[in-house]
Design a protein around this nucleic acid. Structure first.
Lengths: 202, 202
DNA sequence: GTCTATATCCAGATAGAC
DNA sequence: GTCTATCTGGATATAGAC
């Protein structure tokens, strides 16, 4: 009789190679820029010839797509792994720090996830779905802070994205805008709570 | 005797061609993306062969550089052409509208001026100087609103850049974040004025 | 699975005729 | 000033041997 193995060693090996490819792709992107990633360099970095990559990915776009998914999963993990405080203000502060620091940590990842900058790349439907999970999670955390309203959430995203953008563009490696996170969050919380109160008790 | 002409017709012609090249470059960038600009397409668009472009620009980077200067001059013109109101709140509102609308108007220009996205391009010293003029002008308008402090200005730039970034990335062509400008500015003004008062009168 | 060899195409840039 | 012709090098991708 043929034993049917419970582990598919071949699939495991394949997944490991895919992970290795993606890791190398991130590394190259960090030095050459996201648009500067080439299959030549990528293959060289892991000791392969360029055509071999096609055994794992259908195209270069597919690699970007996988990176897009990976980046979003990383952010999602940070959001869900967090112990969220009860207090609204503390929750918003934590959320802002999580997002801005995640953005600043890896500029190329930030560009891939949040800016449309590589020509001809748009995430596939599957990849986009993962991005939606992140969005929903952030939306949920925001609502948990007691501040409903889609306009309120839009303002919130503008604040954290603005802090990220400025930190990355004008003080990379520094903390000129990171230091302002709490002040901005508090400004927003004061504003949102007073608006909330006004609406309830005019 | 040789008449010395007061107008240099040759230089005028040259400037006109340069302007034509840059205009075409912007147009192509708008459809193909900034990184998708090629000298082939550019030359074709104005009825030239690619090598002829080198009579006017030393390299492709020099073209990006000229575009960078042009974009900054456009923004500078908007800032200086403005009749600025006396009232601080009104001034900040106007400034925010100017900046965000300028950004949203032309995404490629926004990318070139405010995001580091094209591989291997950094503005030359001369070009950077023009960008500094813009920065100084904004800084000055901000100070005129009675809100000093470099941290206050940093928060301000984060707000307008965040509104721009979100509008461009998540609702291009719409007004989901444009509609929020006044509310955000007012939130900021309230915050800044109260902090200002607190510092004066603790 | 990985390779060699190659197809195909496009890029920026230069030499030199006119 | 603008051209033709060309250099040089890069890219993604495929065919097919092993």
């Amino acid at each position: 009789m043929l034993e049917i193995p419970t582990r598919d060693r071949r699939a495991e090996r394949r997944d490991a190679v895919i992970a290795e490819i993606l890791e190398a792709a991130w590394e190259i992107s960090r030095t050459e820029g996201l648009a500067g990633l080439s299959l030549r360099d990528l293959a060289a970095k892991i000791g392969m010839r360029p055509p071999s990559l096609y055994w794992y990915f259908d195209s270069k776009r597919a690699i970007y797509d996988a990176m897009f998914v990976q980046g979003n999963r990383q952010l999602l993990a940070r959001l869900t792994d967090q112990q969220w405080p009860e207090d609204a203000r503390a929750g918003l502060r934590l959320g802002a720090h999580l997002f801005v620091e995640f953005s600043v940590e890896d500029v190329q990842r930030y560009q891939l996830l949040f800016q449309r900058t590589i020509p001809n790349f748009e995430p596939s439907a599957d990849a986009y779905a993962v991005a939606m999970l992140v969005h929903d999670q952030m939306r949920e955390r925001f609502a948990a802070a007691g501040l409903g309203g889609s306009e309120a959430f839009d303002i919130w995203t503008a604040l954290v994205s603005g802090l990220s953008a400025q930190q990355i563009a004008n003080d990379p490696g520094g903390d000129r805008w990171l230091r302002l996170i709490d002040e901005v969050v508090d400004m927003y919380t004061d504003h949102a709570l007073s608006a909330h109160a006004k609406r309830k008790d005019p």
